[in-house]
Design a protein around this nucleic acid. Structure first.
Lengths: 169, 169
DNA sequence: GCAATATACTAGGACATCCAACCGTTTGGA
DNA sequence: TCCAAACGGTTGGATGTCCTAGTATATTGC
């Protein structure tokens, strides 16, 4: 999307904040902006790896989640909660995965409101292949040192807990 | 979008990775997933603060960028490069900001291909008010400790440089 | 000087995300 | 028992992001 800039635009923004008398919040602003940009870079890498499999990140996450469920099936609302996305986003992803024959919808045996999402065997196979690719091409070459990974997990874990994502640990 | 989960879903995913024999990349996977989720939480907070101003994050970023330009004007392509988003995303944002009378498009004096985006006085005022709100309600209460902020800036700065965002420092 | 190439922006399309509203199903209290 | 409230999912709409292609203007090279 472009060549490298001569200067770090986020460091520049931080300097602008300080120059305008907002020095007290300039550093957190820079950290937050850096998280945004890093996420953008990571999504682009991940989507690049998944494209040959005909998957997007959202659909991959759903497949991976199902592949870890004992039965290979989960209620929609459970998937929504675990992936921490809006229920309508799950509806959307399931629609497309179902069209691709990677999952099927089935009624819940006892609760008439609930729909179960179930992995097909093609879905399970594709999930495994995509995970192997991601492990090799993204997670295995994250660009973060071991210490940095530990720092990130700790710092962001605290943040997510404080934000109300979960209650344990 | 939901109540807190009893357990950290990302820590669970990391355990699943280890259980499947991918222990060598489980930690980076968890760190990357945590960045994704953190970004999502932060965007939601920011959009919540900006909504009363009739702004989205994308539009705010453009206004803020313009407000730091000496003349209050920038070429579209410059804005695209500094915000590190696709040119069509800038076109989209400018369309809406222009409709809201917060910016205006004007032709470049010497290069007929280039369009300048210029802040109106309403745009400048709104940008200032929105920034004040974000500083108070988001950046000033980020939930990151001072040390964490420094860690994040350093770790993510390295990452972004290695990813080709910029060349200096 | 003119053709070939590069640059700047926009139009249209595919996806994803969220919100608001709606429709069945289930649950719980009067 | 029965109806209101809660729950689970989908539909429709607004935004944003990217990609591909197309138009117009600049720049380069022969």
């Amino acid at each position: 999307m472009g060549n490298p800039l001569p200067r770090d635009p986020i460091a520049d923004a931080q300097r602008n904040w300080e120059r305008h008398g907002w020095g007290d919040v300039a550093a957190p602003m820079a950290a937050i902006t850096a998280i945004m940009r890093t996420q953008q870079i990571l999504v682009a890498r991940i989507e690049g790896v998944l494209k040959p499999f005909g998957l997007t990140f959202a659909r991959y996450e759903l497949l991976a989640l199902l592949s870890f469920a004992r039965s290979g099936a989960l209620p929609m609302n459970k998937a929504s909660a675990l992936l921490q996305v809006h229920p309508t986003s799950v509806t959307n992803a399931v629609d497309r995965l179902e069209k691709a024959a990677l999952v099927v919808r089935s009624p819940h045996p006892t609760d008439g409101r609930t729909t179960l999402i179930e992995l097909t065997s093609e879905g399970r196979t594709l999930s495994k292949r995509a995970t192997t690719a991601l492990n090799a091409e993204v997670f295995g070459q994250s660009g973060f040192g071991d210490d940095d990974v530990e720092h990130l997990i700790r710092i962001l874990g605290s943040f997510r807990r404080d934000a109300g994502d979960f209650t344990d640990a």
